[in-house]
Design a protein around this nucleic acid. Sequence first.
DNA 1: ATTTAATGGTAATATATATTACCATTAAAT
DNA 2: ATTTAATGGTAATATATATTACCATTAAAT
Lengths: 223, 223
Amino acid sequence: MIKSGRPPKGKELLSRDRILDSGLKLFLEHGYGNLNMEMIAKDAHVSMRTIYSYFEGKSGLFGAVIKRCSDQFVDSLSEHIDTEKALITFGKEFIYRVTRPDAVRIRTILIGESLRFPDLATQFYAQGPQLTLDKLAEFFQKKQQQGYFTNLDTNRLANHFFSCLRSERFHKLQLGLEPTPNEAEVDVWVNEAVNFFLYGYTAATLGTSTEGDFIQPIGEAIL
Amino acid sequence: MIKSGRPPKGKELLSRDRILDSGLKLFLEHGYGNLNMEMIAKDAHVSMRTIYSYFEGKSGLFGAVIKRCSDQFVDSLSEHIDTEKALITFGKEFIYRVTRPDAVRIRTILIGESLRFPDLATQFYAQGPQLTLDKLAEFFQKKQQQGYFTNLDTNRLANHFFSCLRSERFHKLQLGLEPTPNEAEVDVWVNEAVNFFLYGYTAATLGTSTEGDFIQPIGEAIL
DNA sequence: ATTTAATGGTAATATATATTACCATTAAAT
DNA sequence: ATTTAATGGTAATATATATTACCATTAAAT
């Protein structure tokens, strides 16, 4: 039993925030269809009335929750260090983030509800992965000006790198067939992926090695 | 109004088949949660009674429907032709199949319902993509005996080829952000992917070209 | 001091739907 | 001919739950 009545000055939006927090937590836990409004009200310590006064029903709340976490992208690309090292650093942060259970769950729910809420997936992708891809393409373009990766559409290159990075394991993870990788496993994962990307299958066996210098990257070889 | 009563000899299982057919069609169209049993009964021209006599409720029917279409895999790999041509032929059939709207929808539903039915996704993957991956690894192993792709774990190689093949576009398609590709678009898609896989970024610009022979594949170059 | 806005708590309302029950009907089994 | 198995059609049952309504309560606004 929480104190009734109008909230004190400056605290009007606290309950709205709590509703969004609880909504995110519970939607991730139960999905859309299996979560009822009473659970949210109880968890956020508000009454149903308050939820309905702030949001347009259950679907409106869901949209607001998704919007609030749709602007996550990775931008840890440095043009000043070795290409391979830059890609590995970027890849590790990216893979670590997108493999967290919450991130997997949010995509699961978005995919599952894409019929009911077709716009949400569009918005999620545009404000997340697409921005990351843009940063990657930008990076490749700068590398091109330095003489690497010549004669290539940088967007396609970025897409291809994304695919190498995700690899089959990401696909299985999204299907619930793989455990969440820890930081060390992400390192191995990304090293292998970057090697495949940079050296093709000539050097993929060096997957876990940090010494890529023994083999001339293809991009430099053709300069 | 359909004829009541016990069905004639030899036709006892016809209604069961119709239930499965209607179930697949309607689950694909509406998903699990938005489809009710009456719609299935009506579409299959049976009564609810018959559905419940053949299946263990809605969840049991769903499981049976998924099982019936969980054994699709691609096995069009020839060791006797040029490696690149073999991979392209295989890739085209694979990508064409997995990009059909029904195939996309079934994965959408499996992912969305993976909380409620964790075993279904496992089974689906084991009887579909995993078998395809096994065939691929087998293919690479035979190629290794011919001197290609040396010193590589063939399973990792197969996984990496899968990733190149799917590419970012598959990911977007699964999120509902891309239209279904037609046969010609699949051809372009697969040619680019195989080029990325075989030649890395040195030759990806030849994406739509069918003449890969101008560039020595990496695998042969290191022989 | 009085009025108004925002809330909690609870119950009512409306609706959807999975599942079961019941009777009539048809054809197989005997 | 009689009994039994399998079905259609419909209604009943149980349940879940999104949404709204109502009154009491608190604090802001005046």
